[in-house]
Simulated assay, not measured.
Amino acid sequence: MKPPPSAPRSLTSLLDTLDPDNPATGADRKRRDAHNGLTIQAMLDRVGGRSFGAALLVPALILVSPLSIIPLMPTIGGLLILTIAIQAFFGRKHLWLPKFLASRRLSGDQLTRAVQYLRRPAAWLDRKSRDRLRFLSAPPMDRIALLAVMVVAATWPFLEILPMFTSVSAGGVALVAFALMVRDGVILIGGYTVLGGSLAVVVALISGLV
């Protein structure tokens, strides 16, 4: 029986697992599976179904990339992040996704564009990350981070017409998820700052409509 994949410990290694042009860490060269595209379930299988921080990063990074302009992508990404974060919040050991989300697929070209776009900022964050203020990302404080992620992601389906807003907001989710993965409280604070700004925009929009 094939052992489950070990969870990525950096953004660069996570991107490697999704890169169609990097079969050594992701795609099967003989089947060229990633070159034909990957479903959401296949992406999460590559990063490990028990690493919720890495799992949260997958849809968050997709939304940070130019793929966020695809119609319904912010809604699907928001539902994915909500589903993952809720399970992590309640301490589920293995990630489960409903079929209508798990079966969503990105083409090989879309994956390649997203990975290439994210390589440079991912490498920069990997260099800057440290084991700092660990208590902020450890239980029970990690539940605050997951709750913040859920609240922000829940707004995305209603703000589909603002793709740039979704990308910035997803960047905050990506920072929080990365901080939980590498136990860096400083990066977590940065993620909270972006998420707080996103919520402030939502509140301002709601206030303007009332």
Score class of each variant (00 low, 15 high):
Leu97Gln: 07
Pro98Ala: 08
Lys99Asn: 10
Lys99Thr: 14
Phe100Ile: 15
Phe100Lys: 08
Phe100Cys: 07
Leu101Gly: 10
Leu101Ser: 09
Leu101Cys: 12
Ala102Phe: 11
Ser103Tyr: 11
Gly108Lys: 10
Gly108Cys: 12
Asp109Met: 06
Gln110Cys: 08
Gln110Val: 01
Leu111Glu: 00
Arg113Thr: 06
Arg113His: 14
Ala114Ser: 15
Ala114Asp: 00
Ala114Cys: 14
Val115Arg: 13
Val115Thr: 00
Val115Ser: 02
Val115Met: 05
Gln116Ala: 15
Gln116Leu: 09
Gln116Trp: 01
Tyr117Pro: 00
Leu118His: 02
Arg119Gln: 15
Arg119Tyr: 02
Arg119Trp: 02
Arg120Ser: 12
Pro121Ser: 11
Pro121Asp: 04
Pro121Gly: 10
Pro121Gln: 10
Ala123Gly: 03
Ala123Ile: 08
Ala123Leu: 14
Ala123Trp: 01
Leu125Cys: 06
Asp126Asn: 07
Arg127Asp: 15
Arg127Thr: 11
Lys128Met: 12
Lys128His: 10
Arg130Pro: 03
Arg130Phe: 03
Arg130Ser: 11
Asp131Leu: 09
Arg132Gly: 01
Arg132His: 07
Arg134Met: 07
Phe135Val: 13
Leu136Glu: 06
Leu136Asn: 05
Ser137Val: 15
Ser137Ala: 11
Ser137Gly: 06
Ala138Leu: 11
Ala138Ser: 15
Pro139Arg: 09
Pro139Cys: 05
Pro140Lys: 04
Pro140Cys: 14
Met141Ala: 11
Asp142Gly: 04
Asp142Pro: 02
Asp142Phe: 03
Asp142Met: 07
Arg143Asp: 04
Arg143Thr: 05
Ala145Glu: 05
Ala145Leu: 14
Leu146His: 02
Leu146Phe: 02
Leu146Asn: 02
Leu146Ser: 01
Leu147Ser: 14
Leu147Gly: 12
Leu147Asn: 04
Ala148Trp: 05
Ala148Ile: 07
Ala148Gln: 11
Val149Arg: 02
Val149Tyr: 02
Met150Ser: 05
Met150Asn: 03
Val151Gln: 13
Val151Phe: 07
Val152His: 04
Val152Gln: 11
Val152Ser: 08
